[in-house]
Write a protein that binds this DNA or RNA. Structure first.
Lengths: 243, 243
DNA sequence: GGAATCGTTCCATTGAATGGAACGATTCCG
DNA sequence: CGGAATCGTTCCATTCAATGGAACGATTCC
């Protein structure tokens, strides 16, 4: 196993539930020997990837700086933020911007009350087939991308999650026709959204944008036009290549 | 030189001006042999730290996900955002939240028009002594921290930058007395700010908060109270340990 | 107060990593 | 348009960065 792979396996252990870890925690989590972990944690701290706190470690500021430079954040999210703020003001919903990564979506920006019952988190991931933003992205993706999602077995998150290939493919066709998609309590019970695709001037799907909230507060007919308009505004300003 | 150090030297080459780089670019930038760079870039791509685009590379989404978990972002910035939004609404300024890292401040959140003449960027750095947020943090830091800043030689960024130890120390004493600090065109000509310290319930300085804008739009007397109040609100909600 | 677990150090051994040489592919420029 | 320059890529003999068992003192737990 390479040194880089070992280092990444260490860094991956840190998450919202485990923000500070010690040598033995990491040795157990990675299966690496304690002296190896000890030496590697020290080196990651020297490189500012981790930060030492007493005898334990946490993720370091350098990762935040690098994260700020990743094109999805530096370019797409930066362009989207003002439009998302406007959408938030007019709809009072929680506005999500997400990109596809493999078979999951990663939330690159969220505007609105983060303490609500909705579990999404900037940097967090959810299965694409179970989210509105994910389904609008899939609707504009090549067949190989859709096949990969279907190959995950389409696990259910609520009883309303689409879990058969037929149901998903019909839904995607409908999204293409209508220009917008929905999460009808498919990722969380009680939570719904209206979503639209963010498409760049070259015609490439870049992200999904959605208005999310408690089901009783989401009016698809009224909000669909708003989110599609906002998605268009964002798409027009995103260059084809996130470089 | 260790493998991790080499990998970090590669990743450090990517910035706002160089978002996509090739094998030879990286070999020149790091001094590493091309086969070494080629193999390492491939491995960083496999680990999702970088992403391959044609025959070149860019920073990968995994770094964004890690960046979202860094406590300064996940905890401090998340707590601060709603208050910063309010401050933005009432003052029309650009609101900065920054933490100290060594002798520089790193901007962990910025609310307001990012296209303005102000060069700050989330994830970006500036010398602490030349910024309002930096000086309010220094005013509440141990002497060793201040000494380290003085040891940098206090470079000037504009003719108004405080560049002698005496001037800086007097300014820090005044900030302690008054409870707020200023950037009087010290980092950029034509740009000023009013700043206040974010102090947690344990009495520890955590961050600096500021209202920033063209000098003519910054009224210290009126805005000082607002930013100090906002900083207090944020400080009260931040736990002592960012864990 | 003793057992369990922590973090830390040492160093003989190992295999991951290196980079010069060479190659085909692509771009540049006269 | 063709040759030079530069690109990315592959090979593999050689090297030294990295490993982890053993052992230790420190700290925590019961």
């Amino acid at each position: 196993m390479s040194v880089l792979a070992r280092a990444v396996s260490i860094v991956r252990l840190f998450d919202t539930e485990h923000s500070v870890l010690g040598v033995s925690d990491v040795a157990r989590g990675t299966g690496l020997a304690k002296p190896t972990v000890h030496r590697m944690l020290g080196e990651l701290a020297d490189l500012r990837i981790l930060e030492r706190v007493g005898t334990r470690y946490r993720l370091g500021l350098f990762l935040f700086e690098l994260g700020a430079l990743v094109p999805e954040n530096h370019t797409v999210a930066s362009i989207a933020r003002p439009v998302m703020n406007d959408l938030r003001e007019t709809t009072k919903g929680r506005i999500h911007l997400a990109v596809l990564d493999g078979t999951q979506v990663v939330y690159v920006e969220i505007v609105g009350d983060t303490k609500a019952a909705i579990a999404s988190r900037v940097g967090g991931r959810l299965a694409a087939h179970a989210t509105g933003v994910g389904k609008v992205i899939l609707a504009h993706s090549p067949p190989a991308v859709i096949d990969a999602v279907i190959a995950t077995g389409l696990p259910r998150y609520t009883p309303r999650t689409l879990h058969t290939p037929g149901a998903l493919l019909r839904e995607l066709a409908e999204i293409r026709t209508e220009g917008q998609g929905y999460d009808r309590e498919e990722s969380h019970l009680g939570i719904s959204c209206v979503a639209a695709p963010v498409i760049d001037p070259a015609g490439q799907i870049v992200a999904g944008l959605s208005i999310t909230g408690p089901t009783r507060m989401i009016d698809p007919h009224v909000m669909g036009l708003a989110v599609r308009t906002a998605a268009r505004t964002i798409g027009r300003q995103v260059r084809s290549s996130m470089s």
